[in-house]
């Protein structure tokens, strides 16, 4: 798919997710999961990354269909502005009118409230799972497992299936706690992971950490589709307002100070030993500021920090030998420091 998109003229530096999608469209809308239908309307909110703007404009031109682009104000301070929420709500109202026109159906607020009620139920269960990583040893890997566990809340949100899924997942985690089962046989290091995973080499990447007994107790990528673990929930009593709040409260819509604050909160609340920054070559939304983030954690917050690079979608940027060398050196020195500290203590 990536090569197909590059054949069309997309540069090697363009986001791997974009090229996967464009490649799929160019491939007669057919991907590994089957064929996608042609859209009647494209809706885009780019709080995930401003690359979405051009991405969806290209799709709209290709499909020759209307595009509703949510203009999402970037987080400019420590908190979300009330004016931004009102602005997002006005956009939601515009979208409702547009949808009514295209579909010929009336907007049904009761139906939306039902959906939000079920969303909230799934969110409560998901947060319980995320919080389980506060235990030592952690029954759950809050990065390597979380990035799979998070899928239903993004693509099936508001459905009963989604609630059922998280109920089953929560039961599994509870059972792990009872039986003492953990993602790795012996937990040695607890880390917070910043950045997306290298999907084409997911297993190899995980194994590089497993070798050292590393479990991720917190991660930012598992929050790109919503940050619920600090208390936010969709509220059926305030449907449009809470949807507006949700759209603004996205990790990649946060400024650098808020990102650092959130990761540092994970470091403390989840009792982590180190921060790992997996910088992604083709992802601007994540990579921007990560070099400064590294400085802040190492020098100001005195947190051991490992900085490694590959890509989220393009297998050509994954170099196992280089990653292994950095990961081994980092945990080797953490382990050695622990042994020395143990001796002097």
């Amino acid at each position: 798919m990536i090569l197909k998109a590059e054949d069309l003229g997309y540069s090697s530096d363009v986001c791997g997710y974009v090229k996967n999608d464009i490649g799929l469209v160019a491939n007669d809308m057919t991907g590994p999961f089957g064929k996608m239908a042609k859209p009647d309307l494209l809706v885009c909110t780019y709080s995930g990354c401003n690359t979405y703007i051009k991405w969806f404009e290209a799709l709209a031109a290709h499909f020759n269909c209307p595009l509703y682009m949510f203009d999402v104000p970037f987080s400019r301070g420590p908190e979300t502005h009330a004016a931004d929420i009102r602005y997002m709500m006005s956009e939601l109202k515009e979208l409702i009118v547009l949808c009514e026109k295209i579909t010929g159906k009336k907007y049904d607020e009761d139906k939306l409230k039902d959906i939000l009620r079920r969303s909230r139920e799934a969110e409560d269960l998901w947060v319980d799972i995320l919080h389980s990583a506060k235990r030592t040893p952690s029954p759950f890997d809050a990065f390597f497992e979380a990035v799979f566990f998070m899928a239903p809340i993004y693509v099936l949100r508001g459905s009963q299936e989604c609630v059922d899924y998280y109920r089953a997942a929560k039961a599994e985690i509870d059972a792990r706690v009872v039986s003492g089962t953990c993602p790795i046989p012996e937990e040695k290091f607890r880390v917070v992971m910043e950045g997306p995973p290298p999907w084409p080499h997911f297993r190899t990447f995980w194994e590089l950490f497993k070798t050292w007994g590393v479990v991720c107790v917190g991660s930012s990528y598992s929050k790109v589709g919503g940050i619920w673990d600090f208390g936010f929930r969709h509220d059926p009593e305030r449907p449009l307002e809470s949807l507006a709040e949700y759209s603004l409260e996205c990790y990649t819509n946060y400024n650098l100070a808020r990102r650092v604050e959130m990761l540092n909160r994970y470091m403390k609340e989840y009792n982590a030993d180190a921060l790992v920054i997996h910088s992604v070559k083709s992802c601007r939304a994540f990579s921007m500021g990560q070099a400064d983030m590294r400085e802040v954690f190492i020098h100001d917050l005195q947190v051991p920090t490992l900085f490694i690079e590959s890509d989220l979608a393009d297998p050509r940027y994954f170099s196992k030998a280089q990653l292994k060398n950095r990961i081994d050196a980092f945990f080797e020195s953490l382990e050695h420091q622990r042994i020395v500290a143990g001796k002097t203590a």
């Binding site: 190492i298 051991p304 920090t305 900085f307 690079e309 940027y317 170099s319 280089q322 950095r326 050196a329 980092f330 080797e332 020195s333 050695h336 420091q337 020395v340």
Partner: peptide
């Protein structure tokens, strides 16, 4: 001071 690695940076690829 004990010769343990506390941080490192490398060129990439």
């Amino acid at each position: 001071a004990q010769g343990e690695v506390s941080d490192f940076c490398m060129n990439d690829k």
